[in-house]
Amino acid sequence: MVGAEEGVVSDREVILGKIRRALAADGNDVGRRAIVIARLEGTPRGIIPERGQLPQEERVALFTTMAEKVSATVGRIAALEDVPRAVAEFLRKHNLPASLRIGADPLLADLAWDGTQIAVSHGPSDGGDPVGLSHAVAGIAESGTLVLTSGPDNPTTLNFLPETHIVVIRAADIAGDYETVWDEVRETYGKGHMPRTVNMVTGPSRSADIEQTLLLGAHGPRRLHIVVVG
């Protein structure tokens, strides 16, 4: 807690003081500050694996391969209006309840669910929803990872509480690497700012805590189905 009682040195000051003494460094050293600011502003990209640096179609193919490798299922449709049909098919095929919880994402809001017999409700999950549908703002081909951001459009609880999570992503939003996605986040939210939660999701929930045996569906969704659009 900063600004402790008067006359008492706060733990903050003690820790920062110890660090500076150990490093023989000065907290007001302009040169040191400049180095730190340069890194925070410049955000160097480092080493980007070649693996994901591909033209779009191949990037989508790599994303699909990597996601399937970690037990997600991936379907591809041509246009957004096909989402209800694709979702209904998936639910039917896996014998899952025809019930869907969705946030307020504009991309998913205007879809015609009427023809699908799926009961659609909106808002965050309280744990009672069997299937959640979200829109991922980005994908990362390198590891088959989805990127979801919190807010009314895609409540974070939908990513974790339902047993089945279906995620819609536009093919054009699949990047090669994480660093490219961070550039987009900086552009959208402003440098130094983030949505409250950014969830990177790579496959359905799992645990290997019992005798190192890998089991799906630990606390999060047992099934992750990705619908790539376009």
């Binding site: 807010g151 983030m194 409250r196 939660t197 950014v198 999701v201």
Partner: peptide, 21 residues
């Protein structure tokens, strides 16, 4: 693993418009 299943970035408490968190 190439990547763990959930890598979660949290920044501050829920925002005024947030329905959860």
């Amino acid at each position: 693993q190439d990547m763990s299943v959930y890598t979660t970035f949290s920044t501050g408490p829920r925002r005024p418009e947030d329905p959860d968190g």
